[in-house]
Design a protein around this nucleic acid. Sequence first.
DNA 1: CGTCAGTCTGAAACCGTTTGCAGTTACATG
DNA 2: CATGTAACTGCAAACGGTTTCAGACTGACG
Lengths: 329, 329
Amino acid sequence: MRATIREVAREAGVSPSTVSRALSMPEMVNPTTRERVLRAAQRLGYAPNRAARGLITGRTGNIGLIVPDLANPFFPSVVKGVQARAREADYAVFLADTDEDPTAEVGLIRVLGKQVDGLILCSPRAREEEIRDLCESTTLVMVNRRFGSVPSVVFDNVDGMRQAVAHLQALGHRRVAWVGGPRTSWSSRDRLRGLRAATAAAGMELVVAGHFPPHFEGGVAAADLIIASGVTSVIAYNDLMALGLLGRLRDRGVQVPEDMSVIGIDDIQMSTMSAPALTTVSLSKAQAGRAAVDLLISLLEQPEGVRNARRELPTQLLVRASTGVAQTN
Amino acid sequence: MRATIREVAREAGVSPSTVSRALSMPEMVNPTTRERVLRAAQRLGYAPNRAARGLITGRTGNIGLIVPDLANPFFPSVVKGVQARAREADYAVFLADTDEDPTAEVGLIRVLGKQVDGLILCSPRAREEEIRDLCESTTLVMVNRRFGSVPSVVFDNVDGMRQAVAHLQALGHRRVAWVGGPRTSWSSRDRLRGLRAATAAAGMELVVAGHFPPHFEGGVAAADLIIASGVTSVIAYNDLMALGLLGRLRDRGVQVPEDMSVIGIDDIQMSTMSAPALTTVSLSKAQAGRAAVDLLISLLEQPEGVRNARRELPTQLLVRASTGVAQTN
DNA sequence: CGTCAGTCTGAAACCGTTTGCAGTTACATG
DNA sequence: CATGTAACTGCAAACGGTTTCAGACTGACG
């Protein structure tokens, strides 16, 4: 059995109230008493029961984290960041994986929402009106999606796309294809927006190949369309899809980067291991996780005081071996 | 504000006790009353406050999951399994990542242990005596490690190694190297044990290359030793390391599988994407996660009743392109 | 020496549930 | 009709903390 506050009180010869104060508002008690209480607590290995504390304070000390698919290496990185930062701030993290199912997502938000002080939604799939509802009953922070005034952490996709296009242009490419992610993905739309702007500014032609599942297989599925479209370069919604492209292009005998330049987004670990290694727009995923936690905590501590509840993290093109000089035909 | 049991009681014209019973022990209340209560609860969107319930029942409805490194794709798969199964059983999952640090692991177990009904330790790094201590104060289930009578879920490494060795033998290999994982890893030792048995039975020579970090880089680091050792085949502690081997072997101009056959363990997604695709001993990771949750829950429900608190999951060699007929020189 | 402000401390109420116990009711039985 | 029994239901006491409020003590000051 764990020690209770009453036992500590008896051990220290004071009342439970004093113990409570000595631990959570130390300046309110006489230094001598405080010392005695702390010693007693130490001796008994006392740690306050979080459920009991939460019952009266209304705060649980937990935050929830909802991701669409842990199997996509993008998310574990974010989770690691969230996790580490939360631990520093003495919060515990509830994790839920929705398996890319928007309905499950909404359900999970509802049930998890009651057990936590706040929620972090990673690349949420839910519809806008649902999010609007939800964010009234729960404090939430979105990662990788921006919507209304809901607090969010996103990457500077526009600049990322600009860098990618500039790189391709410098290599002499005139036509670039876009392999999109899920139709409902905000970041996919945002990236396409950035891409449109960048290609227009560069005077390049953009071919949009449509929407694909954000997996390796999605990239595989898109590859043949890309080949048929006659472009010399392609940018995929994420690295996993870009690797799928790479795989299928190899099978089809299309040389990368000689015949086709391929760029991904995310910079997952795997992208350094492929042959050729993948040129990619790198996102600092763990940092996004940490930023989301920081934002959430500041929101919790001063519900109305946070002026600008948005963070935009920089992106950085990493040139590896999957991009090269355009074929001159 | 969320509805409390009192409001539901008032709405239904009964006492809080009745509401409580109608929800958690339905057979104890009159069907008519029960119906009225359920309706009222429905109308008010009532859900019991888990902290309050936990305070009195002593159970939180949470389980903790501790993994050494989410960046290793093995673990997200396990986490997904744990997650899914826990949700079915109406448990929420606390996740913690220790970054491969045994000290952090012990600390996390202690703090997380107070907030959950039970813990699942994935490939624990902690020392045996510490685990012994810990498992007295917390119910825990270990995955990928077996120790004393501590409940555990492991893979049948011995049979996996047997399959791998039989495969290599059939391809004409006589000498095989082992690239081990961390020194403290139980599963690394267990796999080596299986490998020793299998090679001895097959009359093959085994070269042990020592211990390496369980990452891509660990495999890279081991590659040159392997080349120098003059073997024709190598088995790595996990797929990530096998992929590292593949990468470095390619850089060194060693052809796989012509000059060297490479086998990994885990069957992570990435292993199908490499060139050549990796032959590997496949482990059903999500199933391990589910099994761990089942085991933990049965342990919680009948603390002493569980006779055999061990599960051993089968393994299956998947032959892909990284293994081939031995070089006859 | 009486008064007052200021500093600490303790008693008690409360947070939202569950649960042992006792009370109420209905019904069957003798 | 009295009584025993079974089936429900409500009261009140927990669970382990926090927080309000008032009281006790201290020292300073008039």
